[in-house]
Design a protein around this nucleic acid. Structure first.
Lengths: 166, 166
DNA sequence: TATTGTTATACTCTATAACTATA
DNA sequence: TATAGTTATAGAGTATAACAATA
């Protein structure tokens, strides 16, 4: 178990990494904001899927997913096919135009990252990816796995003073 | 230099880590959204500073900083003192109430992180912090260094971990 | 003229709730 | 009744541009 000071620092870095995300967002193609890019990326990586599955991968509410998907579909980058197994559902699929857009996305982001991280080693980038993935799992497992994280965290009452941590 | 596939994966993880940030944002105290929390945290960590300095630390436009600061000041968590050296400028300072609020923030976030990252070792958390910090530096240096971002850029000696006023 | 900070406006992302159409 | 998805609405975060006061 890590120390409290570490958790504070981690929280700060999580907040600060937003600046990197914004930098990446600024170089996206026209009409393709972050939300659209995320949809295309996940469809390219995981293949055809339903809305609910995409919402889960995005870790956002399905209403949000619906908006992003509508935006992407309106530009012809994906199509929404009927699901023969369930008429309420829709299957999302990248179109050739969507694939081309995804290509462009990938080119831009990797170019920027390659430029900024020019002095990083392969191993360092891999390590960061592994740790971020694990971080996400440590949080995300709570959303699907209902038991473990369901423990409603000791509700902080007490005073406004920090107990001299361990 | 890392491979292209790694950069794509890193971009994906950067996008996905937003879910963790949102989880942290949900447990913040009333009237204290992420922007306010960031202001309080940075003032607590770096001590009194001017708007422009805070904007730089937040990596956002000063207009955004101004809004966040106004929100925080309206709740009495900071005060905006005149700068004797420059009448256009204002010095930001945490109030006792702001310090208490910062305490509460810290308690909540560390609680949540300690819970979610219960099976992480001290070393793993430290490694993630180091890599995220370096990632931010690899991007952030471009903002201050006005020329081409190719150049390693002058590293600002910023090891001041003075816990500000007390 | 340039800089510090504020305000107005617009856009993106997100969540909640109400709604539909199926199951 | 319950679930898949849509839409309306509201709130937070951000950037750009116009502005005021001061340097």
């Amino acid at each position: 178990m890590a120390e409290q000071a570490q958790f504070e620092e981690l929280a700060r870095q999580l907040s600060a990494v937003g600046a990197v995300k914004r930098d990446l967002g600024r170089i996206l193609p026209p009409d393709c904001p972050n939300g659209s890019a995320a949809v295309l990326t996940l469809l390219g990586r995981h293949g055809d899927m339903r809305m609910s599955k995409l919402a889960e991968l995005l870790s956002v509410d399905m209403s949000v997913t619906s908006r992003h998907v509508a935006h992407v579909a309106a530009r012809g980058w994906i199509e929404r096919l009927p699901d023969p197994a369930d008429k309420r559902s829709r299957i999302l699929r990248l179109t050739p135009a969507g694939l081309a857009q995804l290509d462009e996305l990938s080119r831009r982001t990797t170019h920027l990252l390659a430029e900024r991280l020019a002095d990083w080693t392969d191993e360092e980038v891999g390590q960061l990816i592994r740790l971020m993935t694990r971080l996400r799992d440590s949080f995300g497992d709570c959303r699907s796995a209902s038991s473990a994280c369901r423990v409603p965290a000791p509700v902080l009452e007490e005073t406004t003073r920090t107990p001299a941590n361990t």
